[in-house]
Design a protein around this nucleic acid. Structure first.
Lengths: 207, 207
DNA sequence: GCGCGAATTTGAACGGCGTTCACGAGCGTT
DNA sequence: AACGCTCGTGAACGCCGTTCAAATTCGCGC
């Protein structure tokens, strides 16, 4: 059917326009009427392809996650040691964790509005599966170095710890870039991340 | 003047009502019309004592900070060692950091809506001084154990590190209680905080 | 080509929001 | 009693996301 194609075109056009609007002015700059004007459709047409603006935001956020994954794949990963890790190999794993955290900072600083939208957006309904799947995949990047530092942990414990490490890093970045608590320059914030994540990695590996 | 007293009464009545509304339903439950109805004043009267609802929210948040400080003062603080710290004294300082972090978790879990309002609220104007002063005082609680762990740091560096430790803890609590990334039960989250903040403290103290 | 029911698109209208401001009630002075 | 001033009032404004009756387009048998 030709009709489905037109709907699909409208769908992507709306996501494109929403992405541009959010990137330019944050979540609060996303207005249904502006979107309709930008893509040249009727106001009501938006609601023929998305149940509400929240669903549209979620699609934009999925793109942001994909963009972030491209950034994360550029981070050099220390090779997984065979057998018990040597002290040098543990240091390398800590370094990998720090590099991942710094990559997170660079991404947040480089795409502030898109990145903010990921967390500023309050979910009303349960998150769709396709969104959670993307989240889970991203955490694997943290789990790998953790396997070196804490080979004793079960998969579930390690997954949980990976999320906690991410949460801690997110806190550093989130409040560091946020004018509510403090605004730190990127180099200063990077230094703090190196100190904190580094200490965290060494502390986790045991004394 | 009798007039000033009436204004002051209205002011506190509005803060009371706003606090109750936020505690009950979060920031998004705060509506100018509801406030006016609750305190029995005209809609426009709100704007005779506050420039806008943001200013009112800030006053509620100040009360939340004060409430939190009362919670934090109940945390047992390890005594500051005289001279160079022994390993046991360093462990005690780490324990203090962990207890502070857990107290933060308990507060956030105990007053979820009030606590969320502290961070969900996006500031448009610069934060007023009376708000920043309260923030600075709260950070002193973190700086004290840090002085034991890292006596080598200058005041400025230590203050910065204290904020970073808070940020990391805030990330753990914030995302741990948030359904966006994961919802952890309070005991599980407390375990993660003990692991992460503990490792952080030990890592900071040196190997 | 034409007619007609079904499907789809449309944008005016709805309800709700924060904020404003012309109005008028209340009061001290003349 | 008449005047002027101050200040609370709430209808009104502009903007928002979302809806839905009406208009338009589409598909198809004739």
């Amino acid at each position: 059917m030709r009709n489905d194609e037109r709907r699909e075109r409208l769908r992507t056009a709306l996501i494109d326009a929403a992405e541009a609007a959010i990137a330019a002015g944050g979540l609060s700059a996303l207005k249904a009427r502006d979107l309709a004007r930008d893509v040249g459709c009727a106001l009501g047409a938006i609601y023929t392809v998305f149940p509400d603006l929240d669903a549209l935001i979620l699609r934009v956020n999925l793109r942001t996650l994909a963009l972030f994954e491209r950034a994360i794949t550029a981070v050099p990963i220390a090779p997984e040691p065979v057998g018990k890790a040597t002290p040098a190999e543990r240091d390398a794993a800590v370094e990998t964790l720090v590099r991942l955290a710094v990559a997170y900072l660079r991404f947040a600083a480089g795409h502030p509005a898109r990145w903010r939208a990921l967390f500023q957006h309050r979910v009303t309904h349960a998150l769709p599966d396709w969104y959670l799947v993307e989240q889970v995949r991203l955490f694997r990047y943290i789990e790998a170095p953790l396997r070196v530092l804490r080979p004793d942990l079960r998969d579930r414990e390690r997954a949980l710890l990976a999320r906690s490490l991410f949460s801690a890093t997110h806190g550093l970045v989130s409040l560091g870039l946020d004018e509510k608590l403090m605004v730190l320059s990127e180099p200063v914030l990077r230094g703090q991340i190196e100190i904190v994540v580094g200490a965290l990695g060494r502390g986790l590996a045991g004394e």
